[in-house]
Each structure stands twice: as structure tokens, then as C-alpha cells.
Design a protein around this nucleic acid. Structure first.
Lengths: 218, 218
DNA sequence: TATATTTTTTAGTTTTGTCTAAAATTTAAA
DNA sequence: TTTAAATTTTAGACAAAACTAAAAAATATA
């Protein structure tokens, strides 16, 4: 499989999780910052290789084979991210781009040995689940911080937005995976939250809260 | 720089070390298992980018810029090999092909962090030197085992042939980097050697001895 | 339901890196 | 030193993956 084919598969996989329905040509084009015509060309190619179900004008979905391939790419991406953060000490906002390259390295043995070396992690540095060697994914129960109500407490288990900008903001505020976040009050006008992280109190906007995954606790 | 450009640079670099003279189109084509016409095309391209000195029919050599780029690729290749063997526990005969892929990952920060993580190694698992971040190479004094005479002793510090076949043969005989090898006798007819490795005595052909680098000792 | 708008596909180019076949140049041999 | 052989380059073609512009199909609107 070429890099390009792998990138398409991965995109279709992510869109499937996001929208769970048939994926449109335009949705793929937009996410990959390419043209719809390029997407059509590739879909034909992937369809011929039996990686996607594709019917003209009807959108695409992954075949079992395509789904498995996509999961293996995601697995590689996320395991490399863990390596970069845990072993090489990269900040969590810098690993995505490097992992985008590393995910295309071809060697099943390599990725399984890496998995073992990292102690079979189940989540990447942003809290996203890592498919195991068979493609199985253990999803942990989580919800957006914005869904909690006053006086509820959650443990930060993931981020929805993984942009460097957002992650650096979290660093600045001292919010990391594992942080205990208590909702002190909620402003009904703009849905901003007064929260307590460890010992520090401060206010965050709804936009921030809607991009933080927590596991309800206490 | 594209993968292909990087592979050409690397090949020219290796041929330069091997032949130290102007490198011919055919020599490159042969080593890369491609056609001379393809090589010519690429040489023009590399020349335009100021990575090689190239004059029609006169062969090529690396410019300073090309030499530096080539060394950085070799650096990446060899550091990844160390990672695979030291950290992921790969056998030394399996790392080359994976490193051929990993050497193209683009991130200076990544490779420098990897270097640090591995404790700034100076040789790869086959005893080849690893250029540092500035491209400097510390070459250790070494000679072929076949150049030693009766009763001399050497420490194995590298292999000339890095084929899986040869490396597995060495594994089987218990010869590894660091092994102490004593020449008990040399057969003048075929230049085969009776040697002692650790406690074991056995005979090796001249071909084997001519592919083992040692550092004279005792 | 007819028409307008949006989405998707097709057709035809472009770029990168390869190839074959033929021409040009260099090197070796007679 | 002329000819033969080997090497290298040029010219033209091809596949992959992208693009633009135009046509076709689906969807939304009046």
C-alpha cells in the first residue's frame, strides 16, 4: 500500500467514527485538503483493491479488509506517539506530525515489538484508544467536561481537539491527562465554567470544556 | 528532499567511501538496481539543487551541502539501527531493511532526541561509525581479521558484509562485536584460519576472515 | 414538478521517477 | 590512430497522484 492510499484509508476511518454513515467524497476532500476529483480517482483505486465499498455518487465505507488496514495505521500512529512522549520526552503537542510519518513504516514485527517495549499501552498521549494487534479497541467511558453540572468532578482522560494551540493552553493552565477537575459553578449566559484543578481555581470558556474528555468521579 | 533523492545521495556517499574517486553513472545504477538513464536524470536534478558536482560523462561527487545531507541520512539510518537492536531487541541481521525506511523520517529534533536517548552511540550494531549532529565521524582503528598473522589476537569491532546470511553465520559461531578472536594458525594453501573465540576452537575460510573487522589486541 | 444549486465524476494535464531504444561520447583494442 | 566496445546521455513513453475545467447526477427550492 502506498502512503497516499494509507492516508485515504485513515481519513475514511476517522470520518466513519465521527459521522457513522456513508462518507461523501467532499467530506474526504475537505479533511485532506485536496480536490474532490482527486478523491474520486483514489476511491476507484481503493475499491479495486477491495478496501472500500464504493458506488458512484453514493459515498464510501470501509470493507472489513479496509477497516483492518485503517486500524493498523491508527495503531502505528498512536503507538509512535506514546514512544515520542514517554521515551523521547516530546511535549504532547509536537508528536502528531512526526507520527504522521512514522505510521507509514512497514514492519509488523517492528510495531509489535514497539508495543511490547511500551508495555502495551491502551491510549495515546491525547487519550485516544490504541487498537491492539488484532484491531480490537477498548473504549473507556468518557464524556465532555461541558456535559458535567455544578459540583461534579471528573478526571481528565482525553482531548477532543489535538491542536498544538489547545494543548499548549492546557499545559499553561496545568491541565493534563489524569488531572482532577471540579466544576465549582457554571455561568448560564455563556456556559463558561469556574473550575478547580488540583489546588488552583480559574474560569474556562465553554469551548475549552467542550474539548476536554473526563471520566466522572467522586 | 524526496525519498528517491535521499537514496541517491546515500548511494553516492557510500560509493565515495568505497572508491574514493569520481563516481560513475553505472556504479550508481548497479548499486541501486536501476537503469543508467534513470541515474542520469536524477544526477541532473541533484546538480540543480547543488547537492552534487556533475559534468556530463565525467561522473559525480558530492558538494559540501550534498555530503552533509548524506551524512545526516546515514546518521539517521545507524541511530535507528541502534534503537532497534538495543531497545527493541531485534537481531542484528534484521535491522537494515527497517532502518532503510526510518532514515527518511524528517525531524531534526526527533533524531537528536533519539541520539540522546541511546546515549550518543558512536557505532551502529555492525560496527559502522555514526556521524554526530554536525556530521563529524570518529573512525576507530580497525583492520580485517584476514590481515592478522599467526598468534595475533583481535577484538571484533565490525563486519564488512552486513548480509543476513553472514550475520547469522556469525551468530551460529558465537562471534559478536566485542568477541576476542585469536589466530591459532593460518593455512597457506587457502588462507583459512584456525581461530579461538572465547573458549571454542574452529576453522574459518578466508572469505569469512576478510569480512570481519578487528582491533589488534594483547 | 420543473428548475436551480450542489455534489460528484469524467476528461485531459502536470510532475516525479522510472523505463526502453537510440544517439553521443569516452575508453579500450587492434 | 583508427575501429570496436562500453558507457553515458537524450528522447520519448508510462504509471501514480495530483490538478482544472466541464459534464453528469443528485439534492434542494420554488
Amino acid at each position: 500500500m502506498t502512503f497516499s492510499e494509507e492516508n485515504y484509508l485513515k481519513t475514511i476511518y476517522h470520518l466513519t467514527n465521527l459521522l457513522d454513515s456513508e462518507i461523501s467524497t467532499n467530506a474526504i476532500a475537505e479533511r485532506m485538503e485536496t480536490k474532490a476529483s482527486s478523491v474520486t480517482d483514489m476511491l476507484k483505486k481503493l475499491s479495486e483493491k477491495d478496501l472500500v465499498h464504493y458506488k458512484k455518487y453514493q459515498g464510501v465505507s470501509l470493507t472489513d479488509k479496509g477497516m483492518h488496514s485503517a486500524k493498523m495505521i491508527v495503531r502505528k500512529h498512536r503507538l509512535w506517539e506514546v514512544f515520542l512522549v514517554d521515551k523521547l520526552d516530546f511535549p504532547w503537542d509536537e508528536v502528531h506530525d512526526i507520527a504522521e510519518q512514522l505510521e507509514h513504516i512497514k514492519s509488523e514485527k517492528l510495531i509489535n515489538k514497539l508495543d511490547e517495549y511500551l508495555n502495551f499501552p491502551t491510549e495515546d498521549p491525547h487519550g485516544d484508544p490504541i487498537p491492539n494487534a488484532n484491531g480490537q479497541i477498548v473504549t473507556i467511558e468518557k464524556q465532555l467536561l461541558s456535559e458535567l453540572t455544578e459540583n461534579q468532578t471528573g478526571i481528565c482522560v482525553g482531548v477532543k481537539d489535538t491542536s498544538s494551540e489547545f494543548l499548549k493552553y492546557l499545559d499553561k493552565q496545568g491541565i493534563a491527562l489524569g488531572s482532577k477537575i471540579e466544576i465549582l459553578s457554571k455561568e448560564s449566559f455563556d456556559l463558561s465554567l469556574k473550575i478547580k484543578v488540583e489546588t488552583k481555581d480559574f474560569t474556562i470558556s465553554n469551548k475549552i470544556a467542550a474539548n476536554l474528555f473526563v471520566k466522572k468521579s467522586k
